[in-house]
C-alpha cells in the first residue's frame, strides 16, 4: 500500500536518470543538453527573485484573465444556446468551424485589430477558450437527463424553474470539462502569443529569448515552469470540480 504511493515518482526518477545518462555519455551535445542539476539550479534561481518568476506571474495572470473572460461570456451564452436546440443548430456550424480553427492562426489578425499589447494576447486566448466552453456548456444543457426533467415537471415545476433547478445542475459536469479544456488551450495560446514580436515578458517570451541567447539551462527552466503551470492549473480545476460537482460520474 505504502509502496504504491511511490509509483508516480518512478517515471520522474527514470526521466532524470535517462537525462543524466544522456549527458554523461555525450550522446547529445552538452551545450544543448545541460545536466539536470544545472537546469534545476536555473529554475530555482529564476523563480526566486529572477526574471523567470516575473514571466511566470505574467503568464498566469494572462491565462486567468483570459479564462475568466471566456467563462463570463461562454457560460451564459452556452446555456442560452443549449436551451433552444433550434438556435444551437443554426449556429452549430460556425461554432464548430472556429472551434476547429487553430486559435494561433487567428493571432496575426488580432494583432492587426488590437495592436501589440497585453490585450491582444488575452483576447485571442479568451476567444479560443470561449468556443470550447460554449460548445461544452451547450451540450451539457442539451443532454440533461430526460427523466430528471420529467421528474421536476410532474412535481409541478415551471419551465424556468426546471432550467434553474435541474438543467443548470445537469450541465455542470460538462461545463467543467469545457473549463479544463479551455484553460489548457488558453495557456497554449498565451505562451505562443508571448513568443511573437513585440512581447516583453511571459513564459513564451522567456523560452524564446533563452533560445535566441543560447542560454540552454534558462530555456529548460522556463519550459519546466510552463509545464508546472499547465499541470497545476489542471489539478486546481479538478479539485474545484470534485468539491463543486461531487456527483459527477456517479
Amino acid at each position: 500500500m505504502n509502496r504504491d504511493k511511490l509509483l508516480p515518482f518512478v517515471g520522474v526518477v527514470g526521466l532524470i536518470l535517462v537525462w543524466y545518462v544522456g549527458y554523461w555519455t555525450r550522446i547529445v551535445d552538452p551545450v544543448l543538453l545541460p545536466p539536470p542539476h544545472t537546469a534545476a539550479a536555473a529554475l530555482w534561481k529564476g523563480m526566486l527573485g529572477g526574471n523567470l518568476y516575473h514571466d511566470f506571474i505574467r503568464t498566469v495572470a494572462r491565462t486567468l484573465i483570459a479564462i475568466a473572460m471566456a467563462a463570463a461570456i461562454a457560460i451564459p451564452l452556452g446555456i442560452l444556446l443549449g436551451a433552444s436546440e433550434k438556435l444551437y443548430r443554426s449556429v452549430e456550424f460556425v461554432i464548430e468551424f472556429f472551434r476547429s480553427t487553430p486559435a494561433s492562426a487567428m493571432f496575426p489578425l488580432f494583432l492587426v485589430i488590437f495592436g501589440v499589447g497585453d490585450k491582444t494576447k488575452i483576447y485571442v486566448a479568451a476567444f479560443g477558450a470561449a468556443l470550447v466552453i460554449l460548445f461544452n456548456v451547450a451540450y451539457g444543457v442539451m443532454n440533461a437527463r430526460k427523466t430528471r426533467i420529467l421528474a421536476a415537471k410532474v412535481m409541478g415545476a415551471s419551465r424556468w424553474v426546471i432550467m434553474r433547478d435541474v438543467i443548470l445542475w445537469e450541465s455542470m459536469p460538462q461545463t467543467f470539462v469545457g473549463l479544463r479544456n479551455g484553460v489548457s488551450l488558453a495557456l497554449v495560446i498565451v505562451v505562443v502569443a508571448e513568443m511573437f514580436i513585440g512581447s516583453v515578458d511571459g513564459l513564451g517570451h522567456r523560452v524564446f529569448e533563452a533560445q535566441q541567447l543560447f542560454e540552454m539551462p534558462d530555456m529548460y527552466a522556463a519550459i519546466f515552469a510552463a509545464g508546472a503551470l499547465g499541470y497545476g492549473l489542471n489539478v486546481a480545476l479538478l479539485r474545484l470540480e470534485k468539491s463543486f460537482v461531487h456527483w459527477s460520474g456517479k
Binding site: 427523466t147 420529467l150 412535481m155 409541478g156 433547478d165 461531487h246 456517479k250
Partner: peptide, 24 residues
C-alpha cells in the same frame, strides 16, 4: 420512475430531494 438513479437529483442530499416538491 423506474430509473431512480436518473430521477433523483444527485446534487441534493436525500433529505433535500424529499423536500423539493414542498419547496416548489
Amino acid at each position: 420512475f423506474q430509473n431512480y438513479r436518473e430521477a433523483l437529483f444527485p446534487w441534493l442530499s436525500a433529505f433535500a430531494n424529499i423536500e423539493y416538491p414542498l419547496k416548489l
